[in-house]
């Protein structure tokens, strides 16, 4: 590879606008984030009421001795994992389904999925909360009419697990379309003979997926998995809106919301930044792990 014009400075000329923007508005702020995480930095320091002082690892020490933080960290990892698995399962299953149906139902499902995808996170969260509202929402009514009377007026956001389940549903709803569309496009690129040969062998759908499609789709799956991990680990709007900033007594806090609460609600910018740095490092580790995996398999990035 390598274009004909690939001499010395030219790639950097092409890259210059991107690097300037990213350097100024992403790298520099990240550097500042790291810096602030080492400082005693509350509202008083920000507005100049008190001098800034260097804390070393003080904020990090405070974090790791805070039982709450450990709990939130664990919750975040488990919750993100659940979201990723659920999103991938639903997205892949529906992608396979799309290949087995005629154009009209396919169009219906695709359009519905695009609708869910297009819905802004803030409106999506709001609508789901409204759907599950104990007084005015249709879901509780429908469930109790189906004979599950325990759900009449059930407050989904009161219990920790049902609140998380509700948020998980919303997240799967708005993020499975990306997986579905991408995987569907990937399946379409698999030569038809391969799939037909497998079908003629009488293999079940699950076997076809596991033995034929999944291996061929590996690059696609890697991309959607990385994206899902990145998005779901950082989930903010849904938790913030649906559980009202972290739930009763903070039972539904995830890292990003916790950082926001620390930084903005409590003005402990140093502590909030330290949480941000910890998140960044975790995601970095996940991504590097993936890259190594790719490399071992000789994939190109």
């Amino acid at each position: 590879m390598g274009g004909t014009g690939g001499k010395g400075g030219t790639p950097w000329l092409h890259l210059a606008p991107a690097l300037v923007v990213l350097g100024g508005l992403l790298v520099y702020p990240v550097y500042e984030l790291g810096l602030i995480s080492f400082l005693e930095y509350t509202q008083a320091q920000v507005s100049g009421g008190e001098p800034t002082s260097f804390q070393g690892l003080g904020n990090y020490r405070a974090l790791f001795t805070d039982a709450r933080f450990g709990q939130v960290l664990l919750t975040t990892v488990v919750f993100a994992a659940a979201c990723v698995v659920a999103t991938l399962a639903v997205g892949c299953a529906l992608a396979v389904l799309l290949t087995r149906i005629r154009a009209l139902p396919r169009l219906a499902l695709t359009l519905a999925a695009l609708g869910a995808w297009a819905t802004p996170a803030i409106t999506g969260s709001t609508v789901w909360v409204f759907l599950f509202d104990p007084d005015f929402g249709p879901v509780d009514k429908a469930l109790s009419r189906l004979g599950l009377s325990g759900f009449d007026g059930y407050a989904w956001t009161y219990d920790r697990y049902s609140a998380f389940a509700l948020v998980l549903l919303e997240i799967v709803w708005c993020s499975f379309p990306f997986v579905m569309v991408t995987v569907y496009a990937g399946i379409r690129a698999i030569p038809g003979e391969v799939l037909e040969a497998a079908a003629l062998d009488g293999a079940s759908q699950w076997r076809i997926w596991r033995d034929v499609m999944a291996p061929m789709l590996r690059p696609v799956l890697v991309v959607v998995t990385i994206q899902s991990v990145i998005w779901d680990f950082k989930v903010f709007t849904q938790i913030y809106v649906m559980t009202n900033g972290g739930g009763i007594a903070g039972q539904n806090l995830t890292l990003n919301v916790y950082a926001y609460q620390k930084a903005f609600a409590s003005s402990q910018y140093g502590l909030g930044s330290a949480i941000g740095v910890v998140m960044l490092l975790i995601l970095l580790a996940v991504t590097l792990g993936y890259l190594r995996l790719l490399r071992r398999q000789g994939e190109e990035i």
């Binding site: 520099y28 500042e32 990385i226 950082k234």
Partner: peptide, 25 residues
């Protein structure tokens, strides 16, 4: 390749956390 990895890493930055430095910027 370093750049490519950087672009990938850049996607992981929790934007909410950057609000503070960006405000001052």
């Amino acid at each position: 390749t370093t750049l490519l990895v950087m672009f990938l890493v850049a996607q992981m930055v929790p934007v909410e956390a950057l609000t503070i430095p960006l405000f001052f910027l």
